[in-house]
Design a protein around this nucleic acid. Structure first.
Length: 428
RNA sequence: GUGGACGUAGCUCAGCUGGUAGAGCUCCGGGUUGUGGUCCCGGCGGUCGUGGGUUCGAGCCCCAUCGUCCACCCCA
C-alpha cells in the first residue's frame, strides 16, 4: 500500500486470472480479421503532437486537455497516442501505402488519455482498431459493421445495440451547423453551461447531452438527416438497406455525433446498458477528408475502434470469460528421489504428448498439500511419484475428476503415450 | 476539471457513545509415515491507504494527501 509501489493512476494491471478474457477477445478478433482479408499494422506509441492536433482537431477535448504530451531531449513535442486512426493514416502516408493502393488494416494496443478514471474509462486503455483506406463505400461501410457484428456473435455477447447516423460532407455540415447554432441561440435561456460552451466550439455535441433538462430543446432541434447533401443521403440509404439485407438490426440516431473532428458521412456506435455511463463499446465512422487534410491525396476511408476493457468487462458480466489456463496433468513429487526425476519425466511427457499441459510440482510441500494443489490446478490426472516409484521407474496415475479409470501404475517409458491416449480421447 | 461515496489481513468484510484489532475464504502444517475435492485442530498473515492534528488514549473525531467507485464531463 506504500505510495511508491502503486501503479500510475488510471493504468491497470491485467492479472493472470483476467488474462483469459483478453486472450479470448483478441484471438477472436484476429481470426475474424483474417477471414475478411485485413492485415495487421504495428505502430509506435509516440507520434509528433502535431499529427493529433491536425487530425483529431485542435479544439477537441482530447487535444485540449487529455493528451500525454512532452518534449523529448531533442526538444520535439511528442504525444502518447490517444487513438489509433491518426497514426495509421500517418503510417500509410509516410510509407506510400496509399499511392494507387487501397489498404485494409487492423491494429491493437494501448492508447493514452489523461481523464478522470471511472469504470470503463482509464488513462491507459486498449483498443482494437480497423481501418479501410481508399474505399468510398458504402459497401465497405457495411463490411466493417458486419465484422463487428460477427465479433459479438463469436464471443457470445448479448445486449449490444447499433446506432447509426450520417454527418454528411463538411460542406453540408457547415450549413446544418449554422442552422443548429441559430436554433440553440434562440433557446439559450434553457441551455446549461456545458452547452453554452459548446455552442461556439462544437454545437453538434449539444445533441449528445445527457442533461434531462435539455431533452425537450434537443428534441426540437433541426435534424442532420434532413440536411444531408444528395450524395451523402444516397450513401446513407444504401448503407441502411444493405445492413437490413444482411440481417443487422440498427437504429438511426440523428443525435449521434462524434467527438473527433475528422468524421464525415457514416458514423456508428455499439452501445450497451450494462456498463453504466461509459456505454459505448465500439464506435467508428468515415473520414473521407482526413488524408487530404494531412497533406496527402484525397483518399476516402472509414474505420472503427473498440475498447478492450469494456468488452472484457461485458464478457465477465455475461459469464463468457472462461479460464482455460489449467494443466491437464499435475506431477506430484514426494521425496528427493522423485524430485530428482520429476522435471525430466515431465519433459518426456511433453515430448511424447505435445498437446497436453503438464505442470510439475515445484517447491516441495507435504504429500497432502501437493495433492491439494493438483486438485486445485484443475488437472484431470495426477501423476504421483514417490521414492519407491522413482526407484522402480513407474508412476501412479490417479484420476482426479471421477469418470476416468481408477489409479494404476504406468512405467516411465509408457507414460507419455498412455496419458496422451487417455486425455486427448476425451477432452474436458 | 466539477460534485458525491468509500479506503481495516492476499480476497470479502465486521469492529458499539473514542479504551489499544476480529471472522470467513486463501495459504502452510497436522488429524490419516504416501492419496485431493467434505470434516476437525493448529499456524502464517495488519505500521487500520499515507502524513499531520485533537485527546490521558484514535480504526473511529478534524485537516491534508493518494487511491478506488459513482455521476457530470469525455469517449473506447
Amino acid at each position: 500500500m506504500s505510495e511508491t509501489l502503486q501503479a500510475v493512476r488510471g493504468m491497470n494491471d491485467v492479472l493472470p486470472d483476467q488474462a483469459a478474457a483478453w486472450q479470448l477477445l483478441e484471438r477472436a478478433a484476429r481470426e475474424i480479421f483474417a477471414q475478411y482479408g485485413y492485415r495487421e499494422i504495428r505502430l509506435p506509441l509516440l507520434e509528433r503532437t502535431e499529427l493529433f492536433k491536425r487530425s483529431i482537431g485542435e479544439f477537441t477535448d482530447i487535444v485540449e486537455k487529455e493528451m500525454y504530451t512532452f518534449r523529448d531531449r531533442g526538444d520535439d513535442s511528442l504525444t502518447l497516442r490517444p487513438e489509433a486512426t491518426a497514426g495509421i493514416v500517418r503510417a500509410c502516408m509516410s510509407n506510400g501505402l496509399l499511392h494507387n493502393q487501397r489498404q485494409k488494416v487492423w491494429l491493437m494496443g494501448p492508447m493514452f488519455r489523461y481523464e478522470r478514471p471511472q469504470k470503463g474509462r482509464y488513462r491507459q486503455f486498449h483498443q482494437i482498431d480497423v481501418e479501410a483506406l481508399g474505399f468510398p463505400g458504402p459497401d465497405v461501410d457495411v463490411e466493417l459493421i458486419l465484422m463487428t457484428a460477427r465479433l459479438w456473435r463469436v464471443l457470445g455477447l448479448r445486449g449490444l445495440r447499433l446506432h447509426l447516423n450520417s454527418l454528411g460532407t463538411p460542406a453540408s455540415r457547415v450549413v446544418y451547423r449554422a442552422k443548429l447554432v441559430e436554433y440553440f441561440r434562440a433557446h439559450a435561456a434553457v441551455l446549461d453551461a456545458d452547452s453554452m460552451r459548446r455552442l461556439d466550439g462544437n454545437p453538434l455535441r449539444i445533441l449528445d447531452s445527457k442533461n434531462p433538462a435539455l431533452a425537450a430543446v434537443i428534441a426540437g432541434a433541426p435534424l442532420i438527416t434532413d440536411h444531408l447533401d444528395a450524395e451523402s443521403a444516397a450513401h446513407f440509404a444504401t448503407l441502411c438497406s444493405q445492413l437490413t439485407g444482411a440481417g443487422i438490426d440498427f437504429v438511426v440516431n440523428p443525435r449521434l455525433v462524434r467527438g473527433l473532428d475528422y468524421y464525415s458521412r457514416t458514423v456508428f456506435e455499439w452501445v450497451t446498458t450494462d456498463l453504466g455511463s461509459q456505454d459505448a463499446v465500439c464506435s467508428g465512422g468515415r473520414y473521407d477528408g482526413l488524408v487530404e487534410q494531412l497533406g496527402g491525396e484525397a483518399v476516402p476511408a472509414i474505420g472503427w475502434a473498440l475498447g478492450e476493457e469494456r468488452i472484457v468487462e461485458l464478457l465477465r458480466l455475461q459469464g463468457l470469460a472462461r479460464d482455460e489456463g489449467g494443466p491437464d496433468v499435475y506431477l506430484v513429487l514426494a521425496g528427493p528421489a522423485a524430485e530428482a526425476v520429476g522435471l525430466g519425466l515431465a519433459e518426456r511427457i511433453r515430448d511424447g504428448a505435445p498437446g497436453l499441459r503438464v505442470e510439475t510440482n515445484c517447491g516441495g510441500g507435504s504429500f497432502k498439500s501437493q495433492l491439494k494443489r493438483a486438485d486445485k490446478s484443475g488437472a484431470r490426472v495426477a501423476v504421483i511419484i514417490g521414492d519407491d516409484e522413482a526407484s522402480r521407474g513407474v508412476a501412479a496415475v490417479k484420476a482426479l475428476r471421477g469418470r476416468e479409470a481408477a489409479q494404476r501404475e504406468v512405467s516411465f517409458d509408457e507414460l507419455a503415450a498412455e496419458l496422451g491416449r487417455e486425455l486427448q480421447a476425451q477432452p474436458a
